[in-house]
């Protein structure tokens, strides 16, 4: 997994609440059996005026100039600023893969849907929760051309170009995995003995589960 320490990047404000995973990556792209290549389809229905599919070259499609992602000033953005309940809906990890593949490394919002939040950490992508008033302030500041935020995971801060700093919380285990880019499955397999011991005990208590 890609490690995450510090990212300074152009910040794209997406001023909508309840952005669902169907909006982040529509269903037709979930037919891909790969983990990569979803970036061109990120926010597909909002981003293009015509319909798309896996076998349609995105370069031939008509971008929606109104949509924030298509505005030239946000080209190369790597920090996404969002509203409450970001990532609600389906469990598709493809939503995180699409954000990452596009070039985003982190999303900052007042709240996230649980599965999206969980999935993010598995891909080296950092979801950050800040307070409502901090998010409101960032949305105002992000109106400025070329606005860049710095996300520092070891320090657990989001720093503005003007020098303001907002602290965020993160589970220590997740932080450690992200900072070091650790493979969680490998870590768990180091506990194989504990898993086997649990199974042996559980077989006595609840044999039907192992029938």
């Amino acid at each position: 997994m890609q490690a995450f320490t510090q990212v300074t990047g152009l910040t794209l404000p997406l001023d909508r609440a309840n952005v669902d995973t169907d909006a982040i990556i529509p269903k037709q792209y979930l037919k891909s059996i790969k983990r990569s290549g979803f970036g061109p389809f990120l926010f597909d229905d909002w981003r293009y005026l015509d319909a798309g599919d896996l076998d349609i070259d995105p370069a031939t499609r008509r971008p929606n100039p109104e949509f924030v992602l298509n505005q030239p000033r946000y080209k190369g953005a790597s920090v996404l600023l969002a509203r409450e309940n970001f990532g609600c809906g389906s469990s598709r990890e493809h939503a995180v893969w699409a954000l990452s593949d596009y070039g985003f490394r982190t999303v900052i919002a007042p709240s996230f849907a649980d599965i999206f939040f969980n999935n993010s950490f598995k891909t080296g992508f950092l979801p950050i929760v800040l307070k409502d008033e901090e998010i409101d302030a960032l949305f105002v500041e992000a109106q400025a051309e070329g606005y860049r935020l710095t996300v520092d995971l070891p320090e657990q801060t989001v720093r503005t170009p003007g020098g303001k700093s907002f602290r965020f919380d993160i589970d220590p285990f997740r932080k450690d995995c992200l900072v070091r880019g650790l493979d969680e499955i490998g870590l768990t397999l180091q506990r194989s003995e504990a898993i086997r011991a649990y199974e042996a005990r559980r077989k006595q208590e609840a044999p039907w589960l192992f029938a």
Partner: peptide, 12 residues
């Protein structure tokens, strides 16, 4: 769960 956790559940 997401796909990474599908893999984790399968493997462990």
């Amino acid at each position: 769960i997401g796909t990474s956790e599908v893999e984790h559940a399968l493997a462990t």
